[in-house]
Structures are given as structure tokens and as C-alpha cells.
Design a protein around this nucleic acid. Structure first.
Length: 505
RNA sequence: GCGCUCUUAGUAUAGUGGUUAGAAUCUCGGGUUUCCAACCCGAGGAGCCGGGUUCGAUCCCCGGAGGGCGCACCA
């Protein structure tokens, strides 16, 4: 069997081996934009999350969790209600759909459309007899498309599913300020679901309507942004940067740039923001993404979100979908706290320095990961179809080169022969010992030894242990390495320690 | 959301207006096998949903859902 199309093979692998299924619910035909994780996918996700949590502890972050539903006032204050509801023009004849404001801006480049009321836009359309560019039918009323999912709580209270976790974190600000005893910068992150009513979700889990976010926040003073202690430790780090000027020159390859170089030539303005870039890069690299598949792409000023002063996407190059954003690093300034302070009638001005009289609203720097995108891009970039030579033929194998801590199974244990009771019993006992040592071991005996190895290759299991006849004599087994397919013999009582040592290397 | 196109076992597919929808792989049971998807025996599993035309529809028609591509959308 020759494996022809790598992308097809990959797409079927993630279904076949229980990584990602959908659109869910499959037995009812599916709802576009919603996917489920199978056991392997969920194991991978949990492994990623525990690495992130462990590392963020090291970087001084605390974790919070907030409700996914928030009242209307929150989104009015954050600006999402205004920005996430788009005015659209729908052609009554050909059903062509257009963003009303963008379309009108194109028609009337000299007029200020942004901020114009719907009535005024409609008047403009009427006065100038604006018609559908496709079929020339006259446009009528402006309709709304709401990118936020709306529902009701209690007796008709209109509420919204959060379109990002970040805003819900900001609502805890005065609690966090107390909790951290005003030791700025405050570092906190939140992991959880966010919801967006995409018009047409596509590209598998890359654009879902319900998706995970893992968002880190710095609450920081303006002074600290420019004189950031931790920056000194990492300023020599070299990152693949593609700023918007390079993009304007039609470049797509990033330039390896050290952070202090980026700061001194003005590509990056704030050392604290540079530190965020580093942190995003660090967390990405630690998952095993290869260096040449990563780049930071800066948003051009008109691409930026309503709250952002500077924004960079950390992107991964995939076969199927090109460069995919897995993380966004945003300088949100004091925008969010200013808005919420105003709407909630709270005073968020804090004395963050030594002078208690010098109060200011903290700045916010954000590092926002999309775990679903991490999982998809990680699987896709680490997936390989390899040629291998056996004694008799040249064969192929499918292998996921997942990091040792990420693989759903750390080790699999097999009996070389399934109908030899003594070998089977010993293999089962070894598996049991590993499980008791809380090592993620998997026992399998269904199939010839080669098939057992290949099955684990597909799941990314880094180690396989095989019990053979010699094991019965001298208390040793073979351990087979996923990437090299090499084997060596090790002592049975030392397996757990051997694996733990390998993992912590 | 629009246009084009597609939808058959877990996966990837073949074929057909009419007996029991075929092969691969897969899964399970058994045999064989002393290290890389071997082999043998046996078994299991499928035409997206709803309506119409027809004596009869998986196949033709209509509608819906979902996927792919293009447009639009993607703070």
C-alpha cells in the first residue's frame, strides 16, 4: 500500500485515531463550526495544558476562571457589542451579502463612514441610489449581523456568550489588585471556552464557533513597560520577526532578530511587550514546533483590533492551510480598564510606583493562545510519512513525532507472541507496574509485533517495550524508540526509572 | 450567506432504477509467527436527513444538513 496524499492521510488519521471528530453531533449530520475531541486528542490537549500551567507558574502567573456568560453591559463597555455587530447590506434579489460600512466607505472615500448611524447610512444609500454590485438591484434597509452569541438568563435578561476570555479576566481587576497586594506587574491567565457566531466556519478546528482560549495578561504601569526587569534576562533572545513594513514590501520570510535589536531599531516599542513576545515564543517552542515553522507577523495599523496599540500574530506554517495564527500578542493599553472603570463607575487608578500620589490606570499586555489551533498545527507539522527499509521490502510508516511529554501514551508494552502465556503474563505485569508508577503505559497484544509498533507510531508513542523469550530467562526487555526505530535491552526492574530519566532529559 | 461541487462500513473507496451493495484497509474470534502493517480460517460493519417521481430510489427530481473550492466574512 503506497500512501499517496499526505494531507488526506493526515486528515483521516486525526479521525481514525481519536484525535478530533466532527462537526458534532455527527450522528445528526453535524452543526458547522463545532468539533469534539476523542481520547487521544484530549490526552494531547491535557498534556499541553499541564505544560503551560507548569511553565507559567515558573513565570509567576496565577490562574483564574470566569463565567462564559456575561450580561450585556460588559460587552457594551468592552466595545464588543459595537464592534462585533456588523451592519450588513443584503441584496433582495441575489442574496449577496456586504459589509455596509466598508462598502459605503469604498463608494464614498471622502466621507467619514465610521461611526455613522444606521439611519444616516440608509439615507446615503437612498439618496445616491446605491445598488448591488452583482445584479444592480437597489439596496434597502441595513441589517445587523451579530458575531456574539446571544441568549437569555432568567426572565428575559439578554446575555452574551463571551467572544474572548480576556475581558472576563479584566472584570476581576480590583480583586486581583488586592490579591496581588499591588505588586505590579500582576500576571494572570485564564483558560476556557469562547464563542463566536462565525458566518461560515471553515478550516476544521481553526475557525470554530466554540473554541478554547488560553490568555495571559500583564497588568503593568507605563514606567514598568519601558523599564522591565525581566527583559534584561531575555533581551538577547532571537525571534523570527516579520513587521508590517516588511509585509508592505511583499516579504513573507521573517528575519531572525534579537529583541534588543528590535527595541533599538523601533520595531518594538516597549521592553515589556518584547518580553511578551519572548514568552509566546518560549511556550510555543517548548511544545516542539520546529524553528522554521514559526514566525511573528505584525498587524498593520488598520488590521489591528479596536483595543490594540500593537499586535503580532505568532504563526505556524502548515501544509494544508498555509500560515496559521496560534497566538496573538497585543498591547491593549489601558483601553479595557478605562472602559470598564467608566461603565462600572469604579476607580481603577492605582499607585503602582513608590509615590502613592502618582496614580494611573494599568496598561494591559496580552498573550492569547488558541489551544485548538495549537493542537491542529502541532499534529500537522509533526506528522510524517516515512520510507522504511525492512528485510524484505521498502515500506512506509505514519509517525507523529510528538514530544515525550505530549504523546497520549508515553510507552506501550507488548508480548512478542500473544499465544505464549508466560510472555503475556510478564508483559501485563510490566504494564501494571508502569501504570502503578503513574507512567502513561498502554498494553496491546492484538496483532503481529510490527503492527503493534506501527499503531503506536501513529499515536506518537515515543517508547515501546517488548517482552520476548529472553525476558523469561534474564529479566530484560527490548525498548524500541519511535523516531529511530532502534532497540536496546534494558532490565525489567529499571524500566520506570529509565523512562522517567528519558522524559526529564 | 451566495455560486460551483461533493456526501456509500471506523478510514479511504467501487458500482447499480430491480435477488444478498463489491473489493481494500479496519475491528473481533481462532490458527501460525522468536521484533517492524506477513500469512491462513471464520465473523462484523455502509449509500447524510426529509419529501417527490416510480410497481420499486443508494442511484432521478426538490428541499435541508455537512464537507471542499471561489466570493464575502474572519474584532
Amino acid at each position: 500500500m503506497k500512501i499517496e496524499d499526505k494531507i488526506e492521510t493526515f486528515n483521516s488519521l486525526i479521525k481514525r485515531r481519536g484525535f478530533i471528530w466532527g462537526p458534532s453531533p455527527e450522528i445528526y449530520g453535524g452543526l458547522s463550526g463545532f468539533y469534539s475531541y476523542g481520547p487521544a486528542g484530549m490526552a494531547l490537549k491535557n498534556n499541553i495544558l499541564s505544560i503551560f500551567r507548569r511553565e507559567l507558574r515558573y513565570f509567576g502567573f496565577g490562574e483564574v476562571e470566569c463565567p462564559t456568560i456575561m450580561p450585556e453591559i460588559v460587552w457594551k463597555a468592552s466595545g464588543h457589542l459595537e464592534r462585533f455587530i456588523d451592519p450588513i447590506l443584503k441584496c433582495s434579489k441575489c442574496a449577496n451579502l456586504l459589509r455596509a460600512d466598508k462598502f459605503l466607505q469604498e463608494m464614498f472615500p471622502d466621507r467619514m463612514i465610521d461611526g455613522m448611524s444606521y439611519e444616516k447610512m440608509e439615507q446615503l444609500i437612498l439618496d445616491n441610489k446605491i445598488s448591488c454590485p452583482k445584479c444592480d438591484t437597489l439596496f434597502g434597509k441595513i441589517e445587523e449581523y451579530n458575531l456574539m452569541l446571544k441568549t437569555q438568563v432568567g426572565a428575559g435578561n439578554t446575555v452574551y456568550m463571551r467572544p474572548e476570555t480576556a475581558t472576563t479576566t479584566y472584570l476581576l481587576f480590583n480583586r486581583l489588585d488586592q490579591d496581588a497586594r499591588k505588586q505590579y506587574p500582576i500576571r494572570v491567565f485564564q483558560y476556557g471556552k469562547a464563542y463566536r457566531n462565525e458566518i461560515s466556519p471553515r478550516q476544521h478546528v481553526l475557525r470554530m464557533r466554540a473554541f478554547d482560549q488560553f490568555e495571559l495578561q500583564f497588568f503593568i504601569s507605563k514606567e514598568q513597560e519601558m523599564q522591565f526587569e525581566d527583559y534584561e534576562d531575555i533581551k538577547d533572545a532571537v525571534l523570527p520577526l516579520l513587521d508590517w513594513k516588511m509585509q508592505d514590501d511583499n516579504l513573507s520570510e521573517p528575519k531572525m532578530t534579537s529583541l534588543h535589536e528590535a527595541i533599538s531599531n523601533g520595531t518594538l516599542k516597549k521592553p515589556a511587550f518584547a518580553y511578551c513576545m519572548y514568552l509566546g515564543y518560549y511556550l510555543t517552542k517548548i511544545l516542539g514546533f520546529t524553528e522554521d515553522s514559526i514566525r511573528f507577523r505584525q498587524h498593520s495599523p488598520n488590521e489591528r483590533a479596536h483595543y490594540a496599540d500593537d499586535a503580532w500574530d505568532l504563526e505556524i506554517e502548515t501544509n494544508q492551510f498555509g500560515w496559521v495564527e496560534i497566538c496573538g500578542i497585543h498591547d491593549r493599553t489601558d483601553y479595557d480598564l478605562k472602559c470598564h472603570g467608566k461603565f462600572a463607575n469604579e476607580n481603577f487608578e492605582i499607585a503602582m510606583g513608590s509615590d502613592p500620589k502618582n496614580k494611573e490606570i494599568p496598561q494591559i499586555l496580552e498573550i492569547a493562545f488558541g489551544p485548538d489551533r495549537i493542537i491542529y498545527t502541532l499534529l500537522e507539522t509533526l506528522f510524517e510519512v516515512e520510507e522504511i527499509k525492512t528485510k524484505t521490502k521498502v515500506d512506509q510508516r505514519i509517525v507523529l513525532k510528538l514530544g515525550l511529554e505530549l504523546a497520549p501514551n508515553t510507552v506501550a508494552v507488548f508480548p512478542l507472541k500473544k499465544n505464549e502465556e508466560r510472555i503475556k503474563t510478564l508483559a501485563k505485569n510490566i504494564h501494571k507496574k508502569l501504570i502503578e508508577n503513574r507512567i502513561n503505559s498502554f498494553y496491546d497484544e492484538k496483532g503481529a509485533i510490527g503492527k503493534l509498533y506501527r499503531r503506536q507510531d501513529e499515536l506518537g508513542t515515543p517508547f515501546c517495550i517488548t517482552v520476548d523469550f529472553q525476558s523469561l530467562e534474564d529479566e530484560t526487555v527490548t525498548i524500541r524508540y519511535r523516531d529511530s526505530m532502534n532497540q536496546e535491552r534494558i532490565n525489567i526492574p529499571e524500566i520506570s526509572d529509565f523512562l522517567k530519566k528519558k522524559i526529564n532529559q
